[in-house]
Nucleic acid binder design. Sequence first.
DNA 1: AAAAAAAGTTAGGCATACCTTACTTTCACG
DNA 2: CGTGAAAGTAAGGTATGCCTAACTTTTTTT
Lengths: 167, 167
Amino acid sequence: MTEYSALSESLEDYLEVILSLEKASRVARAKDIAEKMGVKRGSVTGALQNLAQKGLIHYEPYSFITLTEAGKKIAHEITRRHGILLEFFADILRLDLKRADSVACRLEHGMDRESMDRLIGFVQFVNQCPRAGKDWSTRFQEFCGKGLPEKEVCQDCLAQCHARVQE
Amino acid sequence: MTEYSALSESLEDYLEVILSLEKASRVARAKDIAEKMGVKRGSVTGALQNLAQKGLIHYEPYSFITLTEAGKKIAHEITRRHGILLEFFADILRLDLKRADSVACRLEHGMDRESMDRLIGFVQFVNQCPRAGKDWSTRFQEFCGKGLPEKEVCQDCLAQCHARVQE
DNA sequence: AAAAAAAGTTAGGCATACCTTACTTTCACG
DNA sequence: CGTGAAAGTAAGGTATGCCTAACTTTTTTT
Protein backbone atom coordinates (compact mmCIF):
# COMPACT_ATOMS: atom_id res chain seq x y z
CA MET A 1 0.00 0.00 0.00
CA THR A 2 1.67 3.20 -1.14
CA GLU A 3 0.69 5.74 1.49
CA TYR A 4 0.62 8.82 -0.65
CA SER A 5 -3.02 9.59 -0.13
CA ALA A 6 -1.61 12.22 2.23
CA LEU A 7 -0.51 14.36 -0.72
CA SER A 8 -2.59 17.42 -1.42
CA GLU A 9 -3.94 18.05 -4.90
CA SER A 10 -1.49 20.85 -5.26
CA LEU A 11 1.51 18.69 -4.45
CA GLU A 12 0.26 16.00 -6.80
CA ASP A 13 0.15 18.63 -9.49
CA TYR A 14 3.70 19.67 -8.74
CA LEU A 15 4.91 16.10 -9.10
CA GLU A 16 3.06 15.70 -12.36
CA VAL A 17 4.56 18.89 -13.73
CA ILE A 18 8.06 17.96 -12.57
CA LEU A 19 7.76 14.60 -14.31
CA SER A 20 6.71 16.19 -17.55
CA LEU A 21 9.58 18.67 -17.37
CA GLU A 22 12.04 15.88 -16.62
CA LYS A 23 10.82 14.09 -19.70
CA ALA A 24 11.24 17.21 -21.77
CA SER A 25 14.54 18.49 -20.37
CA ARG A 26 15.96 15.83 -18.03
CA VAL A 27 15.64 18.21 -15.07
CA ALA A 28 12.98 20.60 -13.86
CA ARG A 29 13.66 24.26 -13.23
CA ALA A 30 11.67 26.22 -10.69
CA LYS A 31 10.82 28.88 -13.21
CA ASP A 32 9.31 26.36 -15.61
CA ILE A 33 7.42 24.68 -12.83
CA ALA A 34 5.97 28.04 -11.86
CA GLU A 35 5.00 28.69 -15.43
CA LYS A 36 3.35 25.33 -15.95
CA MET A 37 1.53 25.50 -12.64
CA GLY A 38 0.37 29.03 -13.23
CA VAL A 39 1.86 30.28 -9.96
CA LYS A 40 4.61 32.72 -9.13
CA ARG A 41 8.23 31.67 -8.68
CA GLY A 42 8.10 32.34 -4.98
CA SER A 43 5.26 29.91 -4.49
CA VAL A 44 7.26 27.08 -5.96
CA THR A 45 10.04 27.09 -3.37
CA GLY A 46 7.75 26.18 -0.51
CA ALA A 47 6.19 23.36 -2.48
CA LEU A 48 9.60 21.99 -3.40
CA GLN A 49 10.76 22.07 0.20
CA ASN A 50 7.62 20.24 1.15
CA LEU A 51 8.13 17.58 -1.53
CA ALA A 52 11.80 17.21 -0.63
CA GLN A 53 10.94 16.75 3.00
CA LYS A 54 8.52 14.01 1.99
CA GLY A 55 11.32 12.33 0.09
CA LEU A 56 9.69 12.75 -3.30
CA ILE A 57 12.24 14.97 -5.02
CA HIS A 58 15.96 15.62 -4.89
CA TYR A 59 16.24 19.25 -3.96
CA GLU A 60 19.17 21.47 -3.13
CA PRO A 61 18.60 25.22 -3.05
CA TYR A 62 19.80 26.90 -6.24
CA SER A 63 20.22 23.65 -8.07
CA PHE A 64 18.22 21.38 -10.32
CA ILE A 65 15.25 19.31 -9.30
CA THR A 66 14.67 15.65 -10.05
CA LEU A 67 12.16 13.11 -8.81
CA THR A 68 13.20 10.37 -6.41
CA GLU A 69 12.02 6.85 -7.16
CA ALA A 70 9.11 7.31 -4.79
CA GLY A 71 8.23 10.62 -6.39
CA LYS A 72 8.48 9.14 -9.83
CA LYS A 73 6.09 6.39 -8.90
CA ILE A 74 3.47 8.82 -7.70
CA ALA A 75 3.97 11.17 -10.63
CA HIS A 76 3.47 8.31 -13.05
CA GLU A 77 0.33 7.25 -11.25
CA ILE A 78 -1.16 10.73 -11.48
CA THR A 79 -0.12 11.08 -15.08
CA ARG A 80 -1.72 7.78 -15.89
CA ARG A 81 -4.96 8.89 -14.27
CA HIS A 82 -4.82 12.07 -16.23
CA GLY A 83 -4.27 10.19 -19.47
CA ILE A 84 -7.17 7.82 -18.97
CA LEU A 85 -9.55 10.60 -18.03
CA LEU A 86 -8.41 12.53 -21.06
CA GLU A 87 -9.05 9.52 -23.26
CA PHE A 88 -12.48 9.07 -21.78
CA PHE A 89 -13.52 12.67 -22.16
CA ALA A 90 -11.94 13.19 -25.56
CA ASP A 91 -12.47 9.87 -27.33
CA ILE A 92 -15.63 8.62 -25.73
CA LEU A 93 -17.48 11.72 -24.60
CA ARG A 94 -16.08 13.54 -27.62
CA LEU A 95 -15.20 16.75 -25.88
CA ASP A 96 -12.63 18.89 -27.62
CA LEU A 97 -9.08 18.21 -26.49
CA LYS A 98 -8.59 21.40 -24.55
CA ARG A 99 -11.71 20.99 -22.48
CA ALA A 100 -11.11 17.28 -22.03
CA ASP A 101 -7.65 18.04 -20.74
CA SER A 102 -8.81 20.67 -18.31
CA VAL A 103 -11.53 18.48 -16.87
CA ALA A 104 -9.10 15.54 -16.65
CA CYS A 105 -6.78 17.82 -14.73
CA ARG A 106 -9.47 18.69 -12.23
CA LEU A 107 -10.81 15.18 -11.77
CA GLU A 108 -7.54 13.27 -11.59
CA HIS A 109 -7.11 13.89 -7.88
CA GLY A 110 -10.52 12.59 -6.96
CA MET A 111 -10.18 9.17 -8.57
CA ASP A 112 -9.34 6.26 -6.32
CA ARG A 113 -7.62 3.15 -7.57
CA GLU A 114 -10.69 1.03 -8.01
CA SER A 115 -12.69 3.66 -9.87
CA MET A 116 -9.66 4.28 -12.02
CA ASP A 117 -9.33 0.62 -12.87
CA ARG A 118 -12.97 0.49 -13.83
CA LEU A 119 -12.63 3.48 -16.04
CA ILE A 120 -9.57 1.97 -17.72
CA GLY A 121 -11.55 -1.19 -18.24
CA PHE A 122 -14.43 0.77 -19.66
CA VAL A 123 -12.28 2.62 -22.16
CA GLN A 124 -10.77 -0.68 -23.27
CA PHE A 125 -14.19 -2.28 -23.44
CA VAL A 126 -15.55 0.50 -25.62
CA ASN A 127 -12.56 0.08 -27.90
CA GLN A 128 -12.83 -3.70 -28.12
CA CYS A 129 -16.46 -4.69 -27.79
CA PRO A 130 -18.01 -5.05 -31.24
CA ARG A 131 -21.20 -3.42 -30.01
CA ALA A 132 -19.21 -0.28 -29.25
CA GLY A 133 -16.06 1.01 -30.98
CA LYS A 134 -15.18 4.20 -32.79
CA ASP A 135 -18.29 4.26 -34.96
CA TRP A 136 -20.44 3.89 -31.87
CA SER A 137 -18.78 6.96 -30.37
CA THR A 138 -19.62 8.77 -33.56
CA ARG A 139 -23.25 7.69 -33.11
CA PHE A 140 -23.08 9.17 -29.65
CA GLN A 141 -21.86 12.43 -31.04
CA GLU A 142 -24.82 12.52 -33.42
CA PHE A 143 -27.10 11.63 -30.53
CA CYS A 144 -25.84 14.67 -28.64
CA GLY A 145 -27.04 16.95 -31.39
CA LYS A 146 -30.22 15.24 -32.54
CA GLY A 147 -31.12 12.54 -30.08
CA LEU A 148 -31.81 8.96 -31.12
CA PRO A 149 -32.42 8.56 -34.87
CA GLU A 150 -35.36 6.89 -36.65
CA LYS A 151 -35.86 3.28 -35.85
CA GLU A 152 -34.77 2.24 -39.34
CA VAL A 153 -31.46 3.96 -38.91
CA CYS A 154 -30.92 2.07 -35.67
CA GLN A 155 -31.82 -1.20 -37.31
CA ASP A 156 -29.45 -0.44 -40.10
CA CYS A 157 -26.67 0.48 -37.71
CA LEU A 158 -27.07 -2.75 -35.87
CA ALA A 159 -27.29 -4.77 -39.04
CA GLN A 160 -23.96 -3.38 -40.17
CA CYS A 161 -22.46 -3.97 -36.80
CA HIS A 162 -23.75 -7.53 -36.88
CA ALA A 163 -22.38 -8.10 -40.34
CA ARG A 164 -18.99 -6.77 -39.33
CA VAL A 165 -18.54 -9.21 -36.54
CA GLN A 166 -19.48 -12.20 -38.71
CA GLU A 167 -17.04 -10.77 -41.22
CA MET B 1 -24.35 33.32 -16.39
CA THR B 2 -24.62 32.41 -12.74
CA GLU B 3 -21.32 33.54 -11.26
CA TYR B 4 -20.96 30.92 -8.59
CA SER B 5 -17.71 29.53 -9.88
CA ALA B 6 -16.25 31.60 -7.06
CA LEU B 7 -17.59 29.10 -4.51
CA SER B 8 -15.06 26.79 -2.93
CA GLU B 9 -15.63 23.06 -2.95
CA SER B 10 -16.29 23.21 0.72
CA LEU B 11 -19.02 25.81 0.40
CA GLU B 12 -20.59 23.86 -2.45
CA ASP B 13 -20.70 20.88 -0.14
CA TYR B 14 -22.38 22.93 2.55
CA LEU B 15 -25.09 24.03 0.12
CA GLU B 16 -25.63 20.49 -1.03
CA VAL B 17 -25.96 19.26 2.53
CA ILE B 18 -28.30 22.09 3.48
CA LEU B 19 -30.53 21.27 0.54
CA SER B 20 -30.74 17.63 1.51
CA LEU B 21 -31.55 18.54 5.09
CA GLU B 22 -34.21 20.99 3.94
CA LYS B 23 -35.78 18.22 1.93
CA ALA B 24 -35.73 15.91 4.91
CA SER B 25 -36.77 18.35 7.64
CA ARG B 26 -37.81 21.64 5.96
CA VAL B 27 -34.94 23.46 7.70
CA ALA B 28 -31.31 22.68 8.35
CA ARG B 29 -29.79 22.68 11.79
CA ALA B 30 -26.13 23.45 12.34
CA LYS B 31 -25.60 20.26 14.29
CA ASP B 32 -26.92 18.10 11.47
CA ILE B 33 -24.88 20.00 8.94
CA ALA B 34 -21.79 19.37 11.03
CA GLU B 35 -22.64 15.69 11.26
CA LYS B 36 -23.26 15.27 7.55
CA MET B 37 -20.15 17.20 6.62
CA GLY B 38 -18.00 15.33 9.08
CA VAL B 39 -16.80 18.55 10.73
CA LYS B 40 -17.22 19.99 14.19
CA ARG B 41 -20.12 22.28 15.11
CA GLY B 42 -17.81 25.21 15.48
CA SER B 43 -16.61 24.90 11.92
CA VAL B 44 -20.12 25.22 10.59
CA THR B 45 -20.75 28.72 11.92
CA GLY B 46 -18.03 30.31 9.83
CA ALA B 47 -19.22 28.57 6.71
CA LEU B 48 -22.80 29.69 7.34
CA GLN B 49 -21.73 33.29 7.84
CA ASN B 50 -19.81 33.06 4.62
CA LEU B 51 -22.77 31.64 2.72
CA ALA B 52 -25.13 34.19 4.25
CA GLN B 53 -22.84 36.99 3.28
CA LYS B 54 -22.87 35.68 -0.29
CA GLY B 55 -26.67 35.74 -0.19
CA LEU B 56 -27.05 32.00 -0.53
CA ILE B 57 -28.76 31.18 2.76
CA HIS B 58 -31.08 32.90 5.20
CA TYR B 59 -29.14 32.96 8.41
CA GLU B 60 -29.80 34.58 11.76
CA PRO B 61 -27.63 33.50 14.66
CA TYR B 62 -29.37 30.91 16.83
CA SER B 63 -32.14 30.28 14.36
CA PHE B 64 -32.89 27.94 11.53
CA ILE B 65 -31.17 27.92 8.19
CA THR B 66 -32.82 27.87 4.80
CA LEU B 67 -31.52 28.36 1.29
CA THR B 68 -32.29 31.54 -0.62
CA GLU B 69 -33.47 31.18 -4.20
CA ALA B 70 -29.92 31.75 -5.41
CA GLY B 71 -28.60 29.19 -2.97
CA LYS B 72 -31.27 26.72 -3.95
CA LYS B 73 -30.32 27.05 -7.57
CA ILE B 74 -26.67 26.28 -6.90
CA ALA B 75 -27.48 23.48 -4.50
CA HIS B 76 -29.72 21.86 -7.10
CA GLU B 77 -27.01 22.17 -9.70
CA ILE B 78 -24.44 20.46 -7.48
CA THR B 79 -26.91 17.78 -6.48
CA ARG B 80 -27.69 17.13 -10.11
CA ARG B 81 -23.99 16.74 -10.90
CA HIS B 82 -23.63 14.37 -8.05
CA GLY B 83 -26.59 12.32 -9.22
CA ILE B 84 -25.35 11.96 -12.77
CA LEU B 85 -21.86 10.99 -11.67
CA LEU B 86 -23.36 8.47 -9.30
CA GLU B 87 -25.43 7.02 -12.10
CA PHE B 88 -22.40 6.79 -14.34
CA PHE B 89 -20.19 5.11 -11.79
CA ALA B 90 -22.86 2.84 -10.38
CA ASP B 91 -24.94 1.88 -13.43
CA ILE B 92 -22.39 2.09 -16.19
CA LEU B 93 -19.05 1.43 -14.55
CA ARG B 94 -20.79 -0.92 -12.14
CA LEU B 95 -19.04 0.19 -9.03
CA ASP B 96 -20.80 -0.61 -5.81
CA LEU B 97 -23.09 2.18 -4.57
CA LYS B 98 -20.95 3.28 -1.69
CA ARG B 99 -17.82 3.69 -3.75
CA ALA B 100 -19.74 5.26 -6.63
CA ASP B 101 -21.20 7.78 -4.23
CA SER B 102 -17.89 8.69 -2.69
CA VAL B 103 -16.19 9.18 -6.02
CA ALA B 104 -19.18 11.20 -7.29
CA CYS B 105 -18.78 13.36 -4.22
CA ARG B 106 -15.15 14.02 -4.95
CA LEU B 107 -15.58 14.64 -8.66
CA GLU B 108 -18.70 16.77 -8.60
CA HIS B 109 -16.80 20.00 -8.03
CA GLY B 110 -14.49 19.49 -10.96
CA MET B 111 -17.16 19.10 -13.61
CA ASP B 112 -17.93 22.10 -15.76
CA ARG B 113 -21.26 22.59 -17.46
CA GLU B 114 -20.27 21.28 -20.85
CA SER B 115 -18.57 18.14 -19.56
CA MET B 116 -21.57 17.56 -17.36
CA ASP B 117 -23.96 17.86 -20.28
CA ARG B 118 -21.89 15.41 -22.26
CA LEU B 119 -21.90 12.94 -19.43
CA ILE B 120 -25.66 13.29 -19.05
CA GLY B 121 -25.98 12.69 -22.77
CA PHE B 122 -23.75 9.66 -22.54
CA VAL B 123 -25.72 8.09 -19.74
CA GLN B 124 -28.91 8.62 -21.74
CA PHE B 125 -27.29 7.27 -24.84
CA VAL B 126 -26.15 4.13 -23.10
CA ASN B 127 -29.68 3.66 -21.81
CA GLN B 128 -31.34 4.27 -25.16
CA CYS B 129 -29.02 3.09 -27.90
CA PRO B 130 -29.87 -0.50 -28.87
CA ARG B 131 -26.18 -1.31 -29.19
CA ALA B 132 -25.76 -0.48 -25.52
CA GLY B 133 -28.31 -0.79 -22.69
CA LYS B 134 -28.43 -2.72 -19.44
CA ASP B 135 -27.28 -6.02 -20.92
CA TRP B 136 -24.30 -4.29 -22.46
CA SER B 137 -23.31 -2.97 -19.05
CA THR B 138 -23.50 -6.51 -17.82
CA ARG B 139 -21.18 -7.54 -20.63
CA PHE B 140 -18.82 -4.87 -19.42
CA GLN B 141 -18.89 -6.27 -15.96
CA GLU B 142 -17.97 -9.69 -17.31
CA PHE B 143 -15.25 -8.08 -19.38
CA CYS B 144 -13.76 -6.60 -16.21
CA GLY B 145 -13.30 -10.05 -14.78
CA LYS B 146 -12.39 -12.08 -17.83
CA GLY B 147 -11.70 -9.78 -20.73
CA LEU B 148 -13.41 -10.12 -24.06
CA PRO B 149 -15.09 -13.53 -24.56
CA GLU B 150 -14.66 -15.99 -27.45
CA LYS B 151 -15.54 -14.68 -30.82
CA GLU B 152 -18.62 -16.89 -31.02
CA VAL B 153 -19.99 -15.41 -27.83
CA CYS B 154 -19.56 -11.95 -29.30
CA GLN B 155 -21.26 -12.98 -32.49
CA ASP B 156 -24.08 -14.46 -30.50
CA CYS B 157 -24.40 -11.36 -28.37
CA LEU B 158 -24.67 -9.19 -31.44
CA ALA B 159 -27.09 -11.53 -33.14
CA GLN B 160 -29.43 -11.29 -30.17
CA CYS B 161 -29.02 -7.56 -30.05
CA HIS B 162 -29.80 -7.38 -33.75
CA ALA B 163 -32.84 -9.58 -33.38
CA ARG B 164 -34.14 -7.46 -30.51
CA VAL B 165 -34.15 -4.27 -32.50
CA GLN B 166 -35.96 -5.85 -35.42
CA GLU B 167 -38.35 -7.26 -32.85
C1' DA C 1 36.41 39.50 -14.61
C1' DA C 2 32.57 42.88 -13.64
C1' DA C 3 28.02 44.24 -14.27
C1' DA C 4 23.52 43.16 -15.67
C1' DA C 5 20.01 39.91 -16.16
C1' DA C 6 17.81 35.83 -14.80
C1' DA C 7 16.65 32.44 -11.56
C1' DG C 8 15.88 31.24 -6.90
C1' DT C 9 14.90 32.08 -1.96
C1' DT C 10 13.11 34.42 2.14
C1' DA C 11 9.88 36.87 4.80
C1' DG C 12 5.60 38.74 5.64
C1' DG C 13 0.60 38.78 4.29
C1' DC C 14 -3.92 37.04 3.10
C1' DA C 15 -7.73 33.61 2.49
C1' DT C 16 -9.65 29.10 3.28
C1' DA C 17 -10.92 25.69 6.18
C1' DC C 18 -10.43 23.12 9.63
C1' DC C 19 -9.72 22.48 14.94
C1' DT C 20 -10.51 23.27 20.29
C1' DT C 21 -12.12 25.55 24.26
C1' DA C 22 -15.02 28.55 26.44
C1' DC C 23 -19.10 31.21 26.38
C1' DT C 24 -24.18 32.18 25.08
C1' DT C 25 -28.75 31.09 23.71
C1' DT C 26 -32.65 28.07 23.36
C1' DC C 27 -35.76 24.76 24.74
C1' DA C 28 -37.88 21.04 27.18
C1' DC C 29 -39.36 19.07 31.37
C1' DG C 30 -39.86 18.72 36.11
C1' DC D 1 -40.92 29.30 35.66
C1' DG D 2 -36.34 28.03 36.03
C1' DT D 3 -32.59 25.26 35.31
C1' DG D 4 -29.67 22.02 32.89
C1' DA D 5 -28.63 19.86 28.59
C1' DA D 6 -28.31 20.58 23.86
C1' DA D 7 -27.42 23.58 20.20
C1' DG D 8 -25.03 27.38 18.59
C1' DT D 9 -21.39 31.04 18.50
C1' DA D 10 -16.91 33.32 19.35
C1' DA D 11 -12.12 33.51 19.72
C1' DG D 12 -7.77 31.85 18.95
C1' DG D 13 -4.77 28.27 16.87
C1' DT D 14 -2.87 25.29 12.92
C1' DA D 15 -1.88 24.00 8.16
C1' DT D 16 -2.14 24.79 3.23
C1' DG D 17 -1.31 27.47 -0.56
C1' DC D 18 -1.10 31.26 -2.78
C1' DC D 19 0.73 36.31 -3.24
C1' DT D 20 4.31 40.37 -3.27
C1' DA D 21 8.61 42.60 -2.35
C1' DA D 22 13.20 42.42 -1.21
C1' DC D 23 17.26 39.90 -1.21
C1' DT D 24 20.79 36.27 -2.80
C1' DT D 25 22.81 33.24 -5.98
C1' DT D 26 23.84 31.91 -10.57
C1' DT D 27 24.48 32.70 -15.30
C1' DT D 28 25.20 35.38 -19.19
C1' DT D 29 27.13 39.05 -21.64
C1' DT D 30 30.46 42.26 -22.89
